[in-house]
Design a protein around this nucleic acid. Structure first.
Length: 908
RNA sequence: GCGGGUGUGUUGAAAUUGGUAGACAAGCCAGACUUAGGAUCUGGUGCCUUGCGCGUAUGGGUUCGAGUCCCUUCACCCGCACCA
């Protein structure tokens, strides 16, 4: 019986499903471990070999933890709402639900072939009403909550209402509140709700007909589709993520995430410590105070003008009659620009206009002009700045363009060509700050403005509230209706509020739900936007803990057992989207006591991307003649992508190529050594480049176990790398070799012979290596260690060796190991074997080999017990001198023993 | 511009964290068995002027000893980018 991976794999996949091998239940007698993958968006293209990389890595870890005695939760589901399905519906008229379900079943069958240990009974789909009921529920909780800055957490809004009614809050007195009508009250509360309706400047994508969140826009284009995005003022649902900025930042520290990812989140949250300073201003004789935000109060003596953001409401108040026309024109012009135009061009163009008003520097009484420019953002700080051209690059560029004065306030700095932005040097031209170092001056200036009551220390965050409305169909409906224009929550017991059917998916300029029949609640119109993609993915990890609970997102007991995700595997592309929103969502639920952990994902591993490896042929221009790679420089050629299935080891299968396309049928070829060599390049895996590798095909030719092993063998999980089918034979050979330890021509070779010390040593080394590597996800080296062990073992078919070997390998190649485990006479699944028993039985080797070096050159080795002290090793080395094993080139002066490693000898 | 990261054979990559650089694979070369081989097995494979020679992007430093630590320069990748 040869290694027949096909029948083995289908046999065990069927048996696992039948026996429910991977079903898990809460079990307080065992420690839990929660391994989660970022669930996929089921796209129409299906999976390519890049997608399962992370799933394979996490599956190996899940299986490994299980062998170690943990009760492992390892679920999977689908992020099923989203734009592509709807875009597809617009083109084809097919309901997104139909295509989504079709795609899901395709994904499922592809995933099943790879042999994952998912507990499919816990599957969630974000588009399933029984799931999005809880997305809507969470939204209602956010609508019904406010962020209490004193308690520093979210609390029911009813508490705020009570406080408003009795003592007033935030500038609204109890009398005002009690006298207010419903509309007014609703307006006041909107300013506090965690989920609120508010006017903001949004990223509007005309092409998609919807608003997008900041993380859905890149370089001024939509991430989905790459369409231009412009700024637009709209009234939208938003989540008050900014209220959590400081907590999102602080608790990042303790998470076991990569530094780069944490850094990305830190930058996105963007904490900056500075000062708010009040400047008195005058406009056409009217005086009013304006607050600015700065991180460099120390430079306040260098202020030569002020700048307002065009979108700021201050512009209206601070524009003089004489300048009104130009200012209005400028503001309009800026508003028309798309995000992309604003960013466009190398060296952004400096634009701006004088407002006609002036500010007074509160420290030196200097009268300075106030300008309006797009380089100041309305959404950050106060939307107004003090400009210090000598020490800020942007202010400098602006001052040069509009010929405004530049006053250096740091001794000896040269500002003739550019500003001096460094925070170092000695202050000058700065009144009481003169002579201080910058760091000192910052503190002194802060103290000064605070003591004079003209300013205060202030910490700002870059993180904005998340825009939560999408003018789309295929998403969760908002459980909100409008009573005389006032938004009111749908009763919780009426959830889920299911997505209505609509006539057509074609864009009409209105949100699709506006066209739905009877889209009302108690006779009142319902909200017509739907929630964005990140809504459904923000709490799915909680639902897996308790997927069938009809009364709660997650029951207290299930949540108390599984707590949070111990290992989360997924791509970096979610660094500033999903991973921020999830953390926010989780913290919110934590505040209200619905979940027991403050952070959702304890440890996170970012798997790299697998890129495609494209192949090219070279056609001589104007002919149907193709020349091999090495000859192409002799001709003028066109590089043409060729389907990689027609190429093996960069050699083109000429007959297959001719059959590929009719126009190539009579192609001619110029070969090198009788072969056509193709060129290659690393590119994104995509259909248009003919470089997509389908995991199904690999399972067909090599088997799932080989695929799993190979994807891990390719290199570290975190690293991006091109897929190259070349090399897969190596791991496939390894499995065949492993198989042959058990079987030869159908003959079972396993025997009960006693293992030799050399064989045990090989096994021990492997166990040691695996113990070391698994937690670092160094699976490539673990697999290498297997190969080495097999080489060392030769044809060893002793049960004593093969049993532990099978268990060790089973997380990587579960199917073949099940088959062989059965061959060893076990009736239970290898997944139910317990790793620690083997580790205990096969203790690590007891001798250490010390290489001995003389002045850095290795001369001989000395074997010592692992427990030997450095002194013992040293005396053993010195003894070599006497016994003559060491033929010296000088006597030993000094012996340096690195415990457990190496001995270095210094020769006189 | 700011922040993070990476540079090792023909290729994917190892290196017990400061200790024989290139493990393990792929590719290539040679051989064995074969009607055949994209099967199996064995051996070889960093480079050169074959020297106790040179080699981990570059130049320096610390050390008995550096791919690893420190500084210089260069190249590439990723993230953020008028965030005051």
């Amino acid at each position: 019986m040869e290694y027949d991976f096909k029948s083995i794999e289908s046999k065990w996949q069927a048996r696992w499903a039948e026996n429910g091998t991977y079903k898990v239940k809460e079990d307080p007698s065992r420690p839990k471990f929660y391994v989660l993958d970022m669930f996929p968006y089921p796209s129409g293209a299906g999976l390519h070999v890049g997608h399962p990389l992370g799933y394979i890595a996490s599956d190996i870890y899940a299986r490994y933890k299980r062998l170690k005695g943990f009760n492992v939760l390892h679920p999977m589901g689908y992020d099923a709402f989203g734009l592509p399905a709807e875009q597809y519906a617009i083109q084809t008229g097919q309901h997104p639900e139909v295509t989504t379900i079709r795609n899901i079943s395709r994904y499922r069958s592809q995933l099943d072939r790879i042999g994952f240990s998912f507990d499919w009974d816990r599957e969630v789909r974000t588009c399933d009403p029984s799931y999005y009921k809880w997305t809507q529920w969470a939204f209602l909780k956010m609508f019904d909550s406010w962020y209490d800055p004193v308690a520093d957490k979210a609390r029911p809004i009813a508490e705020l209402e009570k406080r408003l009614a009795t003592e007033g809050y935030g500038g609204v007195s109890a009398d005002e509140w009690n006298a207010a009508d419903d509309r007014k009250k609703s307006g006041i509360l909107m300013g506090y709700r965690i989920a609120y309706l508010g006017e903001t400047s949004v990223n509007w994508c005309e092409e998609l007909g919807t608003v997008l969140a900041n993380d859905e826009v890149k370089d001024g284009l939509s991430v989905r589709g790459g369409y231009p995005v412009e700024q637009k003022k709209m009234r939208q649902w938003q989540l008050r993520v900014s209220a959590y900025a400081h907590r999102l930042l602080a608790s990042l520290e303790a998470l076991d995430w990569s530094d780069s990812l944490k850094e990305m989140q830190r930058n996105w949250i963007g904490r900056s410590e500075g000062t708010e300073v009040e400047f008195m201003t005058e406009c056409d004789g009217r005086k009013m105070p304006v607050t600015i935000f700065t991180t460099r109060v120390d430079t306040i003596f260098g202020v030569t003008f002020m700048v307002l953001a065009p979108e700021s409401e201050l512009v209206e108040q601070l524009t003089s009659e004489a300048c009104r026309k130009e200012v209005e024109e400028y503001v309009k012009q800026v508003g028309r620009k798309t995000e992309r135009e604003r960013i466009a061009g190398n060296g952004r163009s400096v634009t701006g206009v004088f407002s006609g008003s002036y500010g007074i520097n509160p420290l030196n009484g200097e009268r300075i002009p106030i300008w309006v420019s797009e380089y100041v953002l309305a959404g950050y700080g106060t939307g107004a700045i003090m400009a210090v051209p000598a020490h800020d690059g942007r202010d400098y560029a602006f001052a040069r363009k509009f010929d405004l004065p530049v006053i250096p306030i740091i001794e000896g700095c040269d500002v003739s060509e550019s500003s001096f932005d460094a925070k170092q040097g000695r202050m000058c031209n700065s009144g009481f700050l003169d002579g201080m170092e910058v760091a000192e001056a910052i503190e002194a200036a802060k103290d000064y403005v605070e003591s004079r009551g003209i300013g205060r220390r202030k910490t700002n965050y870059r993180l904005r509230d998340a825009i939560f409305s999408r003018q789309r169909y295929w998403g969760e409906p908002f459980p909100i209706y409008y009573k005389d224009g006032i938004p009111v929550a749908v009763d919780e017991k009426d959830l889920p509020l299911t997505l209505p059917q609509i006539e057509s998916f074609k864009p009409t300029g209105e949100p699709p739900l506006a066209g739905a029949k009877d889209w009302t609640y108690g006779g009142y119109p319902l909200e017509t936007s739907t929630m964005p993609g990140f809504a459904g993915s923000s709490a799915y990890y909680l639902r897996y803990m308790d997927p069938d609970n009809g009364d709660a997102l997650v029951g207290r007991e299930a949540n108390g057992y599984w707590r949070n995700v111990d290992l989360y595997v997924g791509g970096t592309e979610h660094a500033t989207g999903h991973l921020i929103y999830s953390r926010f969502w989780n913290k919110f639920l934590y505040d209200l006591g619905y979940v027991c952990e403050d952070e959702p994902f304890r440890k996170l591993v970012n798997q790299g991307m697998i890129q495609g490896r494209s192949n090219f042929v070279y056609r001589v221009v104007g002919t149907n003649r193709f020349v091999s790679l090495g000859l192409k420089d002799r001709y003028e050629t066109t590089e043409i992508h060729v389907d990689i299935s027609l190429v093996h080891n960069d050699r083109l299968d000429i007959e297959a190529f001719k059959a590929w396309r009719p126009d190539y049928a009579d192609a001619e070829f110029e070969l090198e050594d009788g072969e056509y060599v193709c060129g290659w390049a690393v590119e994104k895996m995509s259909k248009s480049m003919f470089n997509v590798v389908n995991p199904d095909d690999i399972c067909e030719t090599y088997g799932a176990d080989t695929l799993r092993l190979y994807e891990m063998f390719l290199g570290p999980v975190e690293q991006s790398k091109p897929w190259d089918t070349k090399g897969i034979d190596g791991v496939h050979r390894f499995l065949k070799k492993f198989w042959r330890l058990f079987y030869d021509h159908g003959q079972l070779l396993v025997n009960d012979g006693k293992a030799t010390p050399a064989e045990l040593k090989a096994l021990h080394r492997l166990i040691g290596k695996e113990q070391e590597d698994m937690d670092n996800f160094s699976y490539n080296t673990t697999i290498s260690a297997f190969m080495i062990a097999l080489n060392e073992l030769g044809q060893c078919s002793k049960r004593e060796i093969l049993e532990p070997l099978t268990v060790l390998l089973s997380p990587f190649a579960p199917h073949v190991c099940e088959e062989l485990w059965e061959a060893l006479g076990h009736s239970e699944s290898v997944a139910d074997a317990r790793f620690p028993e083997f580790v205990a039985a096969y203790a690590a080797e007891d001798n250490v080999t010390y290489p001995v070096q003389f002045n850095g050159k290795m001369r001989f080795t000395v074997d010592m017990p692992k427990s030997a002290s450095p002194a013992e090793v040293e005396s053993a080395v010195r003894a070599m001198e006497q016994t003559g094993r060491y033929v010296g080139d000088g006597s030993i002066a000094k012996v340096i023993v690195v415990p457990g490693r190496i001995v270095n000898v210094v020769v006189k």
